[in-house]
Simulated scan of single mutants.
Amino acid sequence: MGFGDSEDSFHPPSIVPFQGCGQGNGAGPPIWVSVSSVIIQMMTAMGFGFECLTAIDSHLLTAQCFCFVDDTDVIEAGKSVEQSGEDICHSVQQAASMWAGGISATGCAINPEKSFWWLIDFGWDSREGKWRFRRTPQLLPDNNNNN
């Protein structure tokens, strides 16, 4: 979801101390890469993220997040196919808290109005012999079947 073009452009601040690089600043993207790359490395060191073996040649693929300019999608996944979405909720919260803490350490903050999450999980459909996306009612604790 995009939030549109900014109505304002960057102007050097008249207040001190100045924090951040300012909306519309042409140096904003490289500054964000410099800051976020350190936080991404921190997330990697703490064991957060996603990893799997590629289907054809079994190469290890890892990812901690997807970033575009100043927007980031943090990824947290189960360590095996045996783990359900419900099983990893605690580690998902830890990953979100770690990312927010890293952002806070840089002097910035997460914008709650732009922050949201999705639980994407699969369940085995034994009738069709296929993995399927689990629907919302199947993710509720008192209806934990995989149909």
Rank of each mutant, 00 (worst) to 15 (best):
A109M: 07
F48L: 11
V38F: 06
S97G: 10
A55N: 10
T106W: 14
T54G: 06
F50D: 02
S80Q: 10
M98K: 11
F68P: 00
E51W: 06
W99Y: 15
T72P: 00
S91E: 15
E76L: 02
N111G: 03
L61N: 08
I56W: 11
V69S: 02
L119D: 14
A45D: 15
T62P: 04
G107H: 09
I120S: 04
C52G: 09
D70Q: 01
G85I: 09
T62Y: 09
H90G: 00
Q64K: 04
M98S: 15
F68E: 08
E86V: 02
L60P: 05
M46T: 03
G101M: 04
I40S: 04
C89R: 09
S84W: 10
G101V: 03
I75R: 01
L53I: 09
V92A: 13
S115I: 01
G47E: 10
F66V: 11
D121R: 10
W124A: 02
D121Y: 08
G102A: 13
S104L: 13
S115D: 02
V92D: 03
V92L: 09
E51M: 05
S80D: 08
M42D: 15
W124T: 02
G85C: 11
V69K: 04
G47M: 12
L60T: 07
A77V: 09
F122H: 06
D70T: 01
G47N: 08
E113S: 07
V92E: 05
T106M: 11
G123W: 10
D87M: 07
I75Q: 00
E51T: 10
F116P: 01
A96S: 12
F68Y: 08
F116H: 08
A100W: 09
G102C: 12
F50P: 00
T44Y: 13
C52S: 13
V92S: 08
A105W: 03
I120H: 05
C52T: 15
T54C: 06
D57E: 12
W118M: 14
A109I: 00
A100L: 12
A55Q: 10
A100G: 12
G102E: 12
M43T: 03
C65M: 14
N111F: 05
D73E: 01
V74C: 11
L119Q: 15
C67Y: 02
H59I: 06
C108Q: 06
V38D: 04
W118N: 14
C65A: 15
D73Q: 03
G102Y: 10
A95F: 10
Q41W: 12
G49C: 10
F122N: 06
D87V: 07
C52Q: 15
S84P: 04
L61R: 11
I110G: 00
V69T: 05
G107Y: 13
V74F: 12
T44R: 11
V69H: 08
P112F: 05
W124M: 02
A105R: 07
